[in-house]
């Protein structure tokens, strides 16, 4: 029976194209935030080329926005780089979560998986993981490359045509990202079973309390990072 399941799994290896398809629901988020970034970049006196380079090389929404803010404020280079580092430090946790499921692939491919990891692709990947308990390299590449190319295109187009775009806030497009996180959170809780669900809901309660307290003295991105470390530890300690 178990052997049969294993055979079935190898037959149904998730393809590159399936990864592209699973990325599609997140694209509205990438497109709206990317366009918004292009507009902010231009108003922060960045050139379209610089906007393009940031989206290709930094490839991190929140870090890119903060880059603009600091650049406009005339912050020293060291501050810009250190802040970018801190804002993206949560990727360490995300990579650590995903990486153990992809060790069967080469170093080079693993560098590829890590390089293109974002909040959103992480969310989609762990949702896949919670459903099927495994990840396939080609599927990851399809997911990652679709997100990456969409992000670069959206940022660059935002920089080129930003002046003529309608106000994204009025259209509610900036909320696409939050809505996506909500959906990914729910999808991660769907298959966990009743006892575990109660445990997770309690942890989310802890998360709300700890995020609230930390927000008094930490910027949002650091509060997210530290609260995650604390609550995951509470999770391990309180599990039955």
């Amino acid at each position: 029976m178990e052997i049969q399941t294993k055979v079935d799994q190898s037959i149904h290896e998730h393809t590159f194209f399936q990864g592209v398809k699973d990325c599609l629901p997140t694209l509205l988020g990438y497109i709206s935030i990317g366009l918004a970034f292009g507009v902010i970049g231009i108003t922060s006196n960045l050139s379209v080329l610089e906007i393009f380079l940031l989206s290709v090389l930094v490839y991190a929404g929140s870090a890119q926005f903060i880059f603009c803010g600091l650049y406009v404020a005339g912050a020293p280079v060291s501050v810009i780089i250190i802040t970018t580092f801190i804002v993206n430090l949560r990727h360490v946790l995300m990579s650590f979560t995903v990486a153990p499921h992809l060790t069967r692939y080469s170093s080079l491919r693993n560098i590829g998986f890590g390089t293109l990891l974002t909040d959103e692709t992480f969310g989609v990947a762990v949702t896949k993981l919670s459903k099927e308990n495994r990840l396939d390299g080609n599927w990851m590449d399809g997911l990652n490359l679709t997100a990456y190319l969409t992000w670069i295109a959206s940022c660059t187009i935002g920089g080129l045509v930003g002046k003529w775009l309608p106000d994204a806030q009025g259209l509610g497009l900036d909320f696409a990202l939050v809505a996506m996180f909500v959906a990914l959170l729910v999808l991660n809780l769907v298959d966990v079973g009743k006892n575990k669900l109660m445990h997770y809901l309690k942890l989310i309660g802890w998360m709300a309390i700890i995020m609230y307290i930390l927000s008094y003295f930490l910027p949002g991105h650091l509060a997210v990072l530290i609260a995650t470390v604390i609550v995951a530890s509470i999770g391990v300690v309180t599990e039955k």
Binding site: M94, T97, L129, F181, Y200, L203, A208, V231, G235, V236
Partner: peptide
């Protein structure tokens, strides 16, 4: 085991961050 909690923790943290 600790890493298994990261997805739900980080996603809920990101949602809560947007609500405060």
């Amino acid at each position: 085991r600790w890493l298994a909690y990261i997805p739900v923790c980080i996603l809920s943290a990101l949602v809560i961050e947007s609500l405060i």
